[in-house]
Lab assay of single mutants.
Amino acid sequence: DELVREILGRCTCPDQFPMIKVSEGKYRVGDSSLLIFVRVLRSHVMVRVGGGWDTLEHYLDKHDPCRC
């Protein structure tokens, strides 16, 4: 939770990309009902993408309208 909030807090946009914790390891992202699975691996916040894992920073770079 703290690492996810820290990464989201780096955004300086007036309207921050919403990530709402639904349950342990599950977050709702953006304005959709899309759920992502998150885990911490060796101090990196990882997001389940397709059949693999990606860093939360890279995921936000691709999906946050402010960072695109």
Rank of each mutant, 00 (worst) to 15 (best):
G50L: 06
L8M: 09
R39Q: 12
H63S: 06
Y27S: 02
E2M: 09
D61Y: 12
S43M: 07
D1K: 09
M19K: 06
R48T: 05
L3K: 12
R39V: 09
G51F: 09
L35R: 10
E2V: 06
V38G: 05
L56I: 06
D15S: 13
V47H: 03
G50E: 13
H63I: 13
Y59M: 03
I20S: 09
G50I: 03
S33D: 13
M46I: 10
L34G: 15
L60T: 00
H58I: 03
M19W: 11
P65K: 03
T12Q: 10
D64G: 03
D64Q: 01
D61F: 09
S23K: 08
V22K: 07
G30A: 07
C11M: 03
Y59K: 03
V45C: 09
E2Q: 13
S32W: 01
C66M: 03
V4Q: 00
L60E: 02
Y59R: 01
M19Q: 00
T12R: 11
K21T: 03
D31W: 10
G25E: 07
E6P: 01
D1T: 04
G50C: 06
G52E: 15
T12C: 09
L3W: 04
D1H: 04
R48M: 09
H58T: 09
S32D: 14
C13M: 03
L41C: 11
V49M: 11
L3A: 08
T55H: 07
C11I: 00
K62Y: 09
L35H: 09
R67Q: 01
F17V: 03
L8G: 02
C13S: 03
L8F: 04
Q16R: 12
V49W: 11
L35E: 14
L60Y: 02
I7Y: 08
G51P: 09
L56E: 00
I36E: 04
V22Y: 03
R48K: 15
V40T: 11
L60I: 05
S43A: 10
H63G: 03
F37G: 14
T12V: 09
D31Y: 10
R67P: 01
G50H: 09
S33H: 13
P65N: 06
G25Y: 07
G9E: 13
G30F: 01
G50W: 02
E57A: 05
C66Y: 05
H63V: 12
H44F: 05
K26H: 12
T55G: 02
K21D: 02
V47P: 01
C13L: 03
T12I: 08
R28K: 12
R28Y: 07
I7E: 11
P65W: 02
G52K: 15
G9F: 07
S43I: 06
D31N: 14
D64H: 06
H58G: 13
D64R: 04
R48C: 09
I20E: 12
G25C: 09
I20P: 01
D15I: 13
V22Q: 07
L3Y: 09
D64P: 02
P18C: 06
L41E: 15
M46G: 04
I7P: 00
D54N: 07
L60A: 00
R28D: 06
V47F: 01
V40W: 04
S33C: 11
R10F: 06
L34D: 15
D61K: 09
G52V: 14
V4D: 01
D15T: 15
S33M: 11
L3E: 05
S33W: 04
I20W: 13
V40N: 13
E57L: 01
C68V: 14
V45W: 02
S23P: 01
